[in-house]
Amino acid sequence: MFPSRFDYKSPTSLEEAISLLAANEDAKVLAGGQSLIPMMKLRFAAPAVLVDINNIPGLDGHGAQSDGSYRIGALVRHADLEKSSTLGDHQPTIAAAAPLVADPIVRTRGTFVGSVCHADPQGDWASCMVALGGSIVAQGPNGRRTIAVDEFVSGPFQTVLAADEIAVEAVIPPASGTRKGGYLKLERRVGDFATAGVALSLEMSGSTVAKAGIGLTGVGSSTISATEASAVLVGSSLDDATIAAAAEAAAAATSPRSDHRGSADYKRHIVATFVRRLLAQHQPVEAKVA
């Protein structure tokens, strides 16, 4: 496991990092390195320059902002989120997914933003961000821009990030009601990629769904936003018929392939099952009685 030759740069400011990206063709940003380093060791990736952003101050914070949005800096590790005592109050979907990302070793080093930038269709965070309607803030030579995640991820392992841009933080918009949500993932073993995963975000107005988002992991060539399933939920009180319809719509939004993790049919079935299970967790008492 010996990577190709590369240069290593360790800037101490975002401006310096961006100029290094601009000056070097085929440069890659190194944050947690939990996908990039293995790919380099396997020689699937051979960047000429690594720009290590770990020494840039100010990127390691996460928290609720005064406007109700939630920001996650580029150096926030999965474990920071997993161990956070306040995250669950604001972001139940993220809090549910954090302990399910990879394995404990990867979680101590890998980053939330890096995972979204890696754009692996089997990545958990992109599904959560899609469900939550989140964005990535990118900084380049000409300043910052905010890109919705479903536009940010342009394909498998592809994003719209320019070569001289750095994703500096993830932003989850304020909720228009009481935020609920969760994440379920089927994996063969801790640390395995998802056979299938479902991220759910609900914004409740009383017992009615004001807004909903469903992101699907590992069941298509890219992260999937199950918009029709989400639309079914809006305005409902999560009665059994609505839940069944949403589960069916989510399964219909998938395009899984059969592989050693399971057949395409099975993965579709798991998506439907998990959507149903997640929604049942948030079913208001009156809907359950009915």
Partner: peptide
Amino acid sequence: LLPDRVYG
């Protein structure tokens, strides 16, 4: 006995 085989 992967889950999809048992379910199948």
